[in-house]
């Protein structure tokens, strides 16, 4: 295995609607920023991989259009995953492991505000038997929350506590979208959005883009502040939700074990819904002394296709700021935590 480090992270401010810049301009700004912070000349980047979904803009080949933001001339080695940017980083990491390159750029972007996100996410379901029922992503999460609440005396209060902590933590995150001091009692007294989910159990809809630069140990420039990827693994569960125990996350558990998720100071968990954070904590066996989502997590800003890679960036920020030595970053994809990636990061 080659040791690989994250050198830099850049993001747009996450907001409900990006009304000043096109996707391509968003990509240009984060890519330029991440490359600059990495200390590597742009021409040294050996491979580029992006994560996005054309369904968000409703435009075919939007992911190809985004390459215009790279200044890809002379032509570059490039790839794309129709997944969160965390998986773009994974592909870039694999590429470095194969020896095909020594440095790589991973970026992701999503402008979900152009469509109706819960309905758009229905497109992730099997198109023959489940998708045509018209179920949206919030209803899917509500099914999961109901199953979870029905177990082990779990309560809606525990879920509301996750929302309160997330949005309180986000007060320290200038790029977060939803932040503030909320009271559990008050949140619980509000009407359900889709029972048993309240609005506070659900993520905001967010526009945003981000980018990271990674490098093999021998390609880390002098003066860099590398955060080492000590382990990275992703696992997937069946596509049909009916095949799964939605109250557990065996794919996260296994990915965590493979990635060596122990002795952690913080964990950035990509849990768009409150109960999902509790399922993830359980799957990863996180002790109470592990700080969860100091950035506010996906409940404070959830740019689709971007929020997973953001967890890695936020974990790096904690390490760069000296607030953590060893961190876990998690990303999820699909309905009800279908697929999960765990990455363990450590400072120099």
């Amino acid at each position: 295995m080659r040791d690989v480090a994250i050198l830099s992270f850049a993001q747009t401010p996450y907001k409900r609607r990006e009304s000043e810049r096109t996707e391509v301009q968003m990509v240009l700004s984060v890519v330029t920023d991440a490359v600059e912070k990495s200390g590597l000349p742009k021409s040294d980047i050996g491979f580029t991989c992006s994560g996005s979904s054309d369904y968000l803009a409703g435009q075919s080949f939007a992911f190809v259009g985004a390459i215009d933001g790279l200044g890809a001339w002379p032509p570059i080695a490039e790839s794309h995953v129709e997944m969160d940017g965390a998986w773009a980083l994974y592909e870039a990491w694999i590429k470095i492991q194969t020896g095909m390159c020594n440095t790589a750029l991973a970026f992701s972007f999503g402008r979900a505000s152009m469509g109706s996100l819960p309905e758009t996410l229905n497109m992730q379901l099997d198109p023959y038997t489940l998708g045509p029922l018209g179920i949206d992503s919030i209803s899917m999460a509500a099914l999961q929350a109901r199953a979870w609440l029905d177990q082990d005396n779990h309560t809606e209060r525990q879920m509301a506590e996750v929302a309160v902590r997330s949005r309180k933590n986000a007060l320290n995150n200038p790029d977060a979208q939803l932040k503030g001091d909320f009271e559990v009692e008050k949140l619980l007294s509000e009407p359900y959005l889709i029972e048993p989910l309240h609005k506070h159990d659900c993520p905001p809809i967010t526009d945003g883009a981000n980018a990271v630069v990674i490098a093999a140990a021998d390609a880390v420039p002098s003066g860099a502040n590398p955060v080492w990827i000590r382990g990275i693994d992703h696992r997937i569960e069946p596509h049909q939700p009916g095949f799964r125990d939605l109250t557990q996350s065996p794919s996260t558990k296994l990915a965590g074990e493979k990635a060596g998720a122990t002795r952690l100071d913080i964990a950035e968990l990509h849990a768009p819904f409150t109960h999902q954070e509790l399922i993830l904590r359980d799957a990863l066996g996180l002790d109470d002394d592990v700080r969860i989502n100091p950035s506010g997590g996906a409940l404070a800003a959830n740019p689709m296709m971007v929020a997973g890679l953001t967890r890695m960036g936020e974990a790096c920020r904690e390490i760069w700021a000296g607030r953590a030595k060893r961190a876990l970053a998690h990303a999820t994809s699909g309905h009800c935590l279908q697929q999960n990636l765990v990455c363990v990061l450590e400072g120099d």
Binding site: S19, E20, T22, G58, M114, G115, S116, M123, P132
Partner: peptide, 19 residues
Amino acid sequence: AIVTPTKLVYQFSAIGSHA
């Protein structure tokens, strides 16, 4: 063959150079 109707509505706001 089966028919599974799909409809997604988008609101495109032209910004910057597009606009």
